[in-house]
Design a binder for these strands. Structure first.
Lengths: 124, 124
DNA sequence: GTTATTATTGCAACAATGTTGCATTAGTTG
DNA sequence: CAACTAATGCAACATTGTTGCAATAATAAC
């Protein structure tokens, strides 16, 4: 199954690149002014995740956010950094700080999902 | 608005106490074998949160989990510890380790939601 | 450039989680 | 016991996300 280049995909990828933050499906739909179907946006985003282009983080607002992968290459994805969500401007940022947590004896971690919400410098 | 003691509330509180872990609405519904309405369970859980009896944590499985408050008293709620969710047995535990993260200059945090998912000692 | 192949899209429908309105039930107080 | 009203159950709705399927459109082959 070889990938094809389509307007929707390049548009969504450009949005992720230019925004510099993590975006949710509804944010992308808004920015695209409804030119692309809801379902297509979801499918494109899921494809990006499969291809290792983005990573998905589930926020405490009940939505998934998608952010471009920068640190991780190939199939060794470690999205173990904190994310910040501003309650005013809704912007979601990847923080540089890595999550460090020690588990009880015998536990094995496969995924980390760490959020801080509050107000960013511009919205305080 | 004074609270009243009802069978549903005491049953749900007992479940939370005896389980020793965080429970979601559907877990509670299952354990109560459908004797209590879905909506009632949600309302009871929300009331518990309002009253400071429980805290809510939103997991990356898209559900809210509710756990009894132990460490925090009065209106000074700081649920800033990590949570672990076992992908096999579905159990959700509060870990003792506090979340420590330094935000960019000028940012203010109001809430923390930190998850580790994987396999617990019994399910490895 | 034309054709064949099939990945991608759009639409409808569905599933899961969670909330709200409203009439009924049932704790609590006097 | 009676009055008050918090709590419940049901229906309906909102939001987020997925799946099936026919139509569309990239890509490859000629």
């Amino acid at each position: 199954m070889k990938r094809r280049t389509t307007p929707a995909q390049t548009a969504i990828l450009d949005l992720l690149k230019s925004s510099g933050s993590a975006l949710s499906q509804d944010m992308i739909e808004q920015k695209m002014k409804g030119e692309t179907d809801r379902v297509t946006i979801y499918r494109v985003l899921n494809r990006f995740c499969e291809d290792g282009l983005t990573h998905r983080i589930v926020s405490d607002d009940g939505k998934s956010y998608f952010a471009l992968c920068h640190g991780c290459q190939g199939n060794h994805h470690t999205h173990d950094h904190f994310h910040f969500r501003c309650l005013t401007c809704q912007k979601v940022e990847c923080l540089s700080e890595k999550v460090q947590v020690s588990l009880p004896q015998g536990y094995r971690a496969t995924n980390v999902n760490a959020w801080v919400s509050g107000y960013c410098a511009g919205c305080i």
